[in-house]
Write a protein that binds this DNA or RNA. Structure first.
Lengths: 242, 242
DNA sequence: GGGACAACTTGCGCTTGCGCAAACTCGCGA
DNA sequence: TCGCGAGTTTGCGCAAGCGCAAGTTGTCCC
């Protein structure tokens, strides 16, 4: 039996953690254990980088707990948030797509726990556990589609609609129900929302203030709660001319 | 020997056509022939749809000759050009990504010849010819990255830089050297360029007129020739404030 | 408990580029 | 060959939203 520093915890605690993840559905408990055996578990403090854009890709990851921000930086230093990773998602899959470097950085939005596998293991894992490979490629397909949808959004929508859409997506994917509405359950600044929607923190601030005035949201420092999702949908869909 | 309507041409003409494509590198001639055997070849006239957004995905394709425009249409009818497909590229790979419908439409920009395989064959082909699968996934990875780069571009650049970038990309990917410069070798309208860059045909027209005045390009009806790529690069890179 | 810093708010002016409208022109088919 | 229509050009006015700047507030850490 494995006795490394993480061995026992991986075999016990963690298997129960991953067995409920979609990525590991369709695998027997034994297979899950075996995949886990080659994984390494790590913690990352808030704002720590799991990996950095343009650096050699050594591993791929599954987020076990927390939230991760995927960020692309332009040559002149501007940042764009490509997406947020939620619990259970696979990320940093450069290996599966034949890349040798990461195309973006991954930063812990809160304290996180991740599992990591060396890239070298990808071909074998994909071959031995086809369901695992297929799920991963499906995820990649979804991301490609989401990213293309975002291009469409940026091309055709006004800033107000884009910000409304972004908030709705965050609320749906990572929202936590509270008595006053759906709260985005990790710290998110005006600047972050601006980097998701291609605008400035000033414009985001103005919009959120306006929406707070009319009771659609409640917001504070690095915190947004959607109080009236329905009216937000109306804003998001509002076609200028149809 | 196969004697179907396409058999002889596939075994002869077409194998020589595909053997030089990156997608089929790393396969033996016999393997290439075998993959070809399950393909069906078709022609599409200019402006004909190879497949339509949201319809059931039945096949994946390789473009043997011509140019294809991949278009996404919004619910309210606005169109966005997601990308152009050049000779030798695989496209419509919904199957490999676990989708059941096409996320966009593919339209022949000129008369085209494509090879098509039924989606049902994908798993077997990917299993028996791993190099084929790997190349495809690498292509998908590249497209994801390109699409994300486009989001960054739309978020951080002005219209003039985006249009300049788009022209440079077209010139590099599909440009044909002529005595007066690099000509984009399929018909492309101002409207098309607008749909690639998230602006209006009016703004594109104004920019192209300006660039023609100062000798950077020559353009006509559905035709653009880049005469001075270097100065176009300067425009594209022009950071407002660095 | 208080200071310092990061996040946020808000006002103002201005530029980019869009919307609309009208005219023009090239190429193709009758 | 002529006309029609798609593609293109261009002018004008306007509005979205950005840049800048100054002020405010909430939090964390000492």
């Amino acid at each position: 039996m494995r006795r490394g520093p993480w061995g026992i915890r991986l075999a016990g605690l963690d298997r129960s953690l991953i067995s409920r993840l979609p990525l590991f559905q369709g695998l027997t408990p034994d297979e899950q254990s075996e995949i886990l055996r080659s994984a390494r578990s790590s913690r990352f403090a808030k704002d720590a980088a799991i990996f950095e854009q343009e650096t050699e890709a050594h591993s791929f990851f599954v987020l076990v707990a927390g939230h991760i921000r995927v960020v692309r930086t332009t040559p002149d230093g501007q940042q764009i948030i490509a997406r947020y990773i939620s619990e259970g998602e696979i990320f940093g899959v450069a290996a599966a797509l034949g890349r040798t470097t990461y195309p973006a950085s991954a930063v812990a939005a809160v304290d996180c726990v991740v599992l990591a596998w060396p890239n070298a293991l990808w071909p074998e894992l994909a071959r031995r556990f086809p369901a695992f490979g297929a799920t991963t490629y499906r995820t990649v397909g979804n991301r490609l589609q989401e990213t293309q949808a975002r291009v469409v959004e940026m091309s055709t929508e006004q800033v107000e609609q884009r910000v409304a859409h972004a908030l709705l997506r965050l609320a749906n994917q990572t929202g936590r129900k509270t008595d006053s509405g759906i709260e985005i359950d990790f710290p998110i600044s005006r600047q972050d929302i601006a980097e998701m929607t291609g605008t400035t923190l000033h414009t985001v601030s103005r919009l959120l203030s306006k929406w707070e005035d009319i009771g659609i949201i409640v917001s504070g420092r690095q915190k947004v709660t959607v109080r009236d999702a329905h009216r937000l949908v109306v804003l998001a869909e509002n076609r200028s001319k149809d």
